[in-house]
């Protein structure tokens, strides 16, 4: 098992290097000269040749690609993502707090998603084909089919405006979390609980379940074995939901005015603020790699057959 963990971490590290290189390269492939963007962003109307060269020197843009990449990479390791072209502030000073805010929302939502998916998945699998199963699947189908911004608007109108129970927007207390978490959970758990359900169902028909029953094991003991094997799916869901939600909270953050990554990244993209975009993409990519590695490790701990797969 420890060999597996080491191998998996080496693999994750290699992936990170490749991702950072690609991120850096793509931004550099943009047809716009960053120096021009900087000058425009700072509101200078006349971009003369000399001014551009000066700016290139100032930001180190005249050096070769790999030198700039190494420089940028080393700085990133120290959370120094450079300065924003627009505000001239260090990128991390705005991106950091936004990341923390989004991460909090994501973490709470992922936990809610996992609990709801597992509970509904297990209930539906045990009641397969019966009323409970059909009702839950029907409701989940309708809810996931609704666009999340529309659902959010409906809920704000009902719970915040009409009943005045919850805040309409912002991030003030734990009560601010309730609506956004609810909406994110609805849009993801409705899909993920099906995975748990089908995984439970396929495990319930396995030979080891029959042999367990034929050996006279209690139903609760047999059920624990089924759960143990089915929950690997739930763990993968949980770990992969975190980066996916991190990257897709844009809509929800805008509806609820959540001071997070989503709104920040949109602004950066619209104003072509390259350092901020680079940092944003990199952070998302890193979180994908990290949570993917964590999910693999937990699964390998639970399913020994996977350990030889690397």
């Amino acid at each position: 098992m420890s060999i597996y963990i080491v191998k998996r971490m080496v693999l994750a590290f290699l992936l990170l290097i490749i991702i950072s290189l690609i991120t850096f390269a793509f931004i550099n492939l943009s047809p716009l000269n960053p120096a021009v963007v900087v000058l425009q962003a700072q509101g200078i109307p006349d971009t003369t040749e000399e001014l551009i060269r000066q700016t290139e020197q100032q930001f180190g843009l005249d050096r070769p690609f790999f030198v700039r990449y190494l420089d940028w990479g080393m700085a990133c390791l120290q959370l120094d993502f450079g300065h924003s072209y627009v505000t001239n502030q260090p990128v991390w000073s705005t991106l950091g707090p936004a990341f923390v805010n989004t991460f909090k929302l994501t973490l709470v939502s992922s936990i809610a998603i996992m609990i709801v998916s597992v509970v509904l998945g297990v209930i539906c699998a045990l009641q397969v084909g019966k009323k409970v199963d059909k009702t839950v699947r029907g409701i989940a189908f309708i809810l996931t089919a609704m666009p999340s911004y529309w659902l959010a608007a409906l809920m704000i109108w009902y719970f915040s405006v009409k009943l005045d129970w919850l805040p309409t927007s912002g991030m003030d207390s734990y009560r601010s979390y309730i609506l956004p978490v609810l909406i994110i959970t609805i849009s993801y758990a409705g899909i993920y609980f099906r995975n748990v359900r089908s995984s439970m169902l396929s495990n319930m028909n396995k030979d080891y379940v029959l042999y367990g029953r034929a050996s006279g094991l209690k139903e609760s003991v047999v059920m624990m074995h089924i759960l143990r094997n089915s929950l690997q799916v739930a763990i993968s869901i949980f770990c992969m939901a975190i980066p996916i939600i991190l990257g897709s909270t844009v809509v929800i953050e805008n509806v609820f005015a959540w001071p997070g990554l989503g709104s920040l990244s949109i602004r950066a993209i619209l104003s072509r603020d390259f350092p901020v975009i680079q940092a944003y993409v990199l952070i998302l990519a890193i979180s994908f790699v990290i949570f993917n590695a964590i999910s693999d490790m937990i699964n390998a701990a639970m399913n020994p057959r996977l350990r030889n797969g690397l």
């Binding site: 080891y208 029959l210 042999y211 034929a214 006279g216 143990r228 094997n229 639970m302 399913n303 020994p304």
Partner: peptide, 18 residues
């Protein structure tokens, strides 16, 4: 199990793989 025991066809799948 105790009075009527069963021997399964495929040993490889008769035990919880985890």
């Amino acid at each position: 199990g105790k009075e009527i025991a069963m021997i399964m066809q495929n040993g490889m799948s008769a035990f919880d793989p985890s």
